[in-house]
Design a protein around this nucleic acid. Structure first.
Lengths: 144, 144
DNA sequence: TTATAATTAATAATGATTATTAAAAAAGAA
DNA sequence: TTCTTTTTTAATAATCATTATTAATTATAA
């Protein structure tokens, strides 16, 4: 998404188009390496020295909430442990952050596809399915 | 892994077998929902009121380091953002935590396999490949 | 313009995690 | 066993990412 598209997208979701939002979005788009809020802050501050780190955090979360960008590590707030050390696959509820194991031969058989750089030694992989669990689903339909 | 296997495994990796380690491991194994350190702490404290939260953290990290258990959310320390909101796949360096996008039609075509509970509304999925990137690889071979 | 709502900047507060350190427990040697 | 050394634990302080607060600023609507 380019700058103009971003501006349109902000308007569509009802966000005011501010200099800060554009600057933060632009810096994020310049990256291919999935930066942290602090990374973005340090860069944006070059052009805009009075911006606050809290603004960067808030803006990134706001943009993610409206699906203009995304958070790669949305389960990052608390460390979660697993009794087994073997790589396997998970179902994650995006509402309550419940994590459920998936046992699937089909997923174990994926292997390493084309499109994966060769200069990277891959140790294992895991598939994460994001969705809404039964109890969160029924909790939300009760509201209607 | 059961209790006895755990004790053997500790010995194999050179960790002393302590009451605390057994208690923490047992509680973790009772869970299917991938608890946090604090969850484990609250439960272990029922049986062992003098245990410290820091001990639980340290023990979980120690066990994970020796591959007796694992951390589901090992990228959890800092939130990382992505300029696009479309689900896609990633390569993650387990050393420097670099995240690289993978564009793969094969991965996009996986779909939802058998083994995934039906009472869960899946919104999307992503495959994460864990490994060692080129620069971390060459940095470690320099040591030899 | 004027009023109202949204956003920002600065800073304080929170909360998860880690570091520190002294005491306790375990392991090894005599 | 007893002494010595190393590892582990408990308690607590410190750190650091993130969020909340609040007053000032900016944008929008009337």
């Amino acid at each position: 998404m380019g700058r103009d598209e971003f501006i349109d997208a902000c308007k569509q979701v009802g966000l005011n188009v501010t200099y800060q939002r554009i600057a933060i979005f632009n810096k994020l788009m310049e990256h291919t390496d999935h930066p942290s809020a602090d990374d973005i802050y340090k860069e944006v501050r070059q052009d805009y020295p009075t911006i606050s780190l809290a603004t960067v955090y808030k803006t990134l979360e706001t943009l993610a909430k409206h699906d203009l960008i995304s958070k790669v590590t949305y389960l990052h707030d608390i460390a979660r442990y697993d009794g087994t050390s073997e790589a396997h696959h998970h179902l994650v509820c995006i509402k309550c952050k419940k994590i459920i194991d998936i046992d699937s031969n089909a997923l174990d058989a994926i292997g390493i596809p084309a499109g994966v750089p060769g200069n990277f030694r891959i140790l294992n992989y895991r598939v994460q399915f994001d969705g809404i669990c039964e109890s969160c689903e029924s909790a939300s339909t009760e509201q209607e």
